[in-house]
Design a protein around this nucleic acid. Structure first.
Lengths: 249, 249
DNA sequence: TACACCAGGTGTACGTTGTACACGGTTCTA
DNA sequence: TAGAACCGTGTACAACGTACACCTGGTGTA
């Protein structure tokens, strides 16, 4: 239990020691992680099984366990490897910097939607993810905000991108599973629309009839602009009320 | 495949027909759903297996299949049942109304964190969830916004609550799994903190030393206030640029 | 140079999951 | 009263992560 976590930390933060004895390794931790990422990219998170990853490498499932303690740790390594892919430091004034940070996260999630579908409960923080987060803090560090406020601002942006990304990722997966695009799916559901009567759902039918769902606004662009506007109001305010977390969770 | 979806829709939108023949049913769809919700509330989403639900009802796993087509559909029913628990219509001017909407969702997610952990990919929309969404649209329908804008505003709020809720839900699950609270966990990780050196993560160490992580701001309250501020800027603006979605997903 | 050691990879096996299928008992309808 | 419709059970299977025992091949030390 305890050593479990410590081992995961070492796994992520310390480079794997290379063996001097034994046969030359065909596999390596990096190769396993790389193969797993490829599988997840191409076939989705459901196809990400140890057997499938091993198969793409031409080995058996158990061979992976020589290079990775278990599936959970493999997921940790995959996530941090993706965070490492784009290691640019946002620059500029706070708003441009946060926007850059958000767009980079967004691009990352679009390239690897499975990242948001892994159970994130107590996922181990890796060095590359932390580095990116550190850079984001730096962007808002010169505004005279209190420490808690700096953390809150960056958290808000990151959480926003996570939220939009997750619905995007779910859509991707749904399309892969069913083979039906989002639009076709909604259109094809007469069985569903017949229940959307004006007396039951007046606004939804009205919005539907006036085309509100046909050409939706870009959720990422819309939400990001609103959020940054709201943060601007906060940052430029004379007084900032602080609401601390009271409940435990 | 096709009938699969149509059947799910009927399942959610049409009340289950009651049988006239056969022995009196000890179980019912409502009882199964209720029991499943109790299991998820008490033991988390991982414990939500067909066998476990049946056990709490004093039956075998297969008995559930008389009342529910499968696990996926059971999840759909659980989610909509929770949406039905609080069926109040938000009132007031747009800002108060949206805030009410957000707080109701937040309360719902706090009571049933598992809702956000279910794979939401193409989860079937149920009548109660739709009714609540319709009410939210109504709140912002009198502001002279275009249809797409109304949809975007409500989506932004709902997505925000989803995002904050999901991280909350992950924390709850992690504490259940490991038996260690979030705070204890971070504090106990010398193995982790030893890697947080000022040269590697200058901002994080600085924020840590100045207490930025000790008493974090309430993520829900902070984010909601910022988002509503940003939406106010948008709603009260003379001109509103529209960025439509261009990419497919 | 001999050999003990150790790491890489394989094959087998187990417990857990959702659920297909066949069966036996129960109650209303024709 | 015969039969149809329905309820719940028991058994079984495929897929999953992974523990374990086992060979194999290369290197450091004797």
């Amino acid at each position: 239990m305890k050593s479990d976590r410590d081992r995961s930390i070492r796994l992520l933060w310390e480079p794997p020691a290379e063996a001097t004895r034994g046969p030359k390794a065909a596999l390596s931790q990096a190769r396993v992680v790389e193969a797993a990422i490829k599988v997840a990219d191409a076939e989705g998170v459901d196809a990400l099984t140890m057997r499938r990853v091993a198969e793409t490498l031409g080995n058996t499932a158990m061979s992976l366990y020589r290079h990775v303690p278990g599936k959970s740790e493999l997921l940790d390594l995959m996530v941090d490897a993706v965070w490492a892919e784009t290691e640019h430091t946002p620059k500029g004034p706070w708003r441009a910097g946060l926007e850059f940070f958000a767009r980079q996260m967004w691009a990352m999630y679009r390239a690897h939607p499975w990242m948001l579908q892994l159970t994130t409960s107590r996922r181990m923080p890796g060095p590359h993810a932390m580095t990116r987060q550190d850079a984001a803090y730096a962007v808002v560090s010169e505004l005279g905000l209190a420490s808690e406020e700096i953390v809150a601002v960056v958290t808000a942006v990151a959480q926003f991108v996570d939220g939009v990304g997750r619905t995007m990722a779910d859509r991707v997966q749904a399309e892969r599973e069913t083979g039906v695009s989002e639009e076709d799916w909604w259109n094809g559901r007469e069985a569903l629309w017949q229940h959307f009567t004006p007396d039951r759902l007046p606004m939804m039918t009205h919005l539907w009839n006036s085309g509100g769902f046909e050409r939706p606004l870009d959720e990422f662009e819309f939400g990001l602009a609103r959020l940054l506007d709201g943060l601007a109001v906060f940052i430029e305010a004379e007084e900032r009320p602080l609401v601390r977390r009271e409940t435990c969770l």
